[in-house]
């Protein structure tokens, strides 16, 4: 028993240590965005909002935030529409093998390094003569959010009771009516959750954007530019704002998918 409870303590310590490992970087960023000394070291002498006002004074930030919001909206809508339709289409297929192969292909972009996706798209657009910019970046964002939408919706649809749909059709509902009245209300929360996830991925996307956005700015591209120039505490303020937006999106995404009706 004594040995058993020690083992329990060690297990607890291990889990806490891993969580600290994952969350200390985030905590540090938030903490130093409020610290009043420009040198990023302890002890912290006082708190200030100066870095936020300085970050917001940066004339580039408005453009960066607007572009980031635009890209996030495009990936949420584009990723959701195509990803949901794809997940449904896969389930309608008769053969188990075709389903698995298609699903695997749908997830493929998630396992190719972003660097490779980024440069491949850059090559593609250059061949087409499409100048780097927001459009090219938007395509990249939709591409990397699609696998996650497909994954989320596939997990939801596997427990979806298709007999309800059959029943509606037997009672004379047109496919469109059945979709609007039955399917959509049942999967709406999962679709919204997947959309929020796509928006979060887009908000945080740097690598693919960097190779395709040209001289345009997004929030991560602006942060990258500042980071390369050296230590500037207003980076922490910008980063904290980005983190706050990400946290809201992710928590909303996980909450909507947990509330999904069974």
């Amino acid at each position: 028993m004594v040995a058993g409870s020690w083992r329990y303590v060690w297990a607890y310590v291990f889990v806490c240590a891993v969580m600290l490992y994952l969350y200390v970087p985030i905590a540090v960023t938030v903490l130093f965005s409020f610290a009043n000394s420009p040198r990023l070291s302890l002890p912290i002498e006082g708190l200030t909002l100066d870095w936020y006002s300085r970050a917001l004074d940066n004339p580039l930030i408005v453009t960066a935030l607007r572009n980031t919001a635009l890209l996030a909206a495009i990936s949420a809508v584009g990723g959701c529409l195509m990803g949901t339709a794809f997940a449904f289409g896969v389930l309608k297929l008769r053969q188990e093998r075709t389903r698995r192969v298609l699903l695997g292909l749908g997830l493929l972009p998630a396992v190719v390094p972003l660097l490779v996706i980024g440069v491949a798209l850059a090559v593609f657009f250059r061949t087409l003569g499409s100048k780097p910019g927001l459009f090219n970046a938007a395509v990249g964002h939709v591409l990397i959010s699609l696998p996650f939408v497909v994954l989320t919706l596939n997990a939801r649809l596997e427990t979806f009771d298709f007999s309800v749909l059959e029943a509606a059709r037997d009672l004379g509902a047109t496919p469109g009516r059945a979709f609007l009245d039955i399917t959509l209300p049942l999967i709406r929360t999962s679709v919204i959750g997947a959309g929020l996830l796509a928006a979060a991925l887009s908000l945080d996307e740097f690598v693919v954007t960097w190779f395709n956005v040209g001289t345009e700015l997004t929030a991560p591209v602006l942060i990258w530019g500042l980071m390369r120039r050296g230590v500037d505490p207003s980076i922490n303020a910008l980063a904290t704002m980005l983190l706050a937006a990400l946290l809201v999106l992710i928590l909303a995404a996980t909450m909507t998918s947990r509330r999904a009706p069974q």
């Binding site: 994952l22 969350y23 200390v24 970087p25 985030i26 540090v28 960023t29 996830l197 979060a200 991925l201 945080d204 740097f206 991560p220 942060i223 990258w224 980071m227 980076i235 980063a239 980005l242 983190l243 990400l246 946290l247 992710i250 928590l251 996980t254």
Partner: peptide, 14 residues
């Protein structure tokens, strides 16, 4: 899961 989606660049910088 939440940590996976919270700030790629930001965490490296931290």
């Amino acid at each position: 899961l939440v940590s996976l989606f919270s700030g790629y660049l930001v965490r490296i910088y931290a």
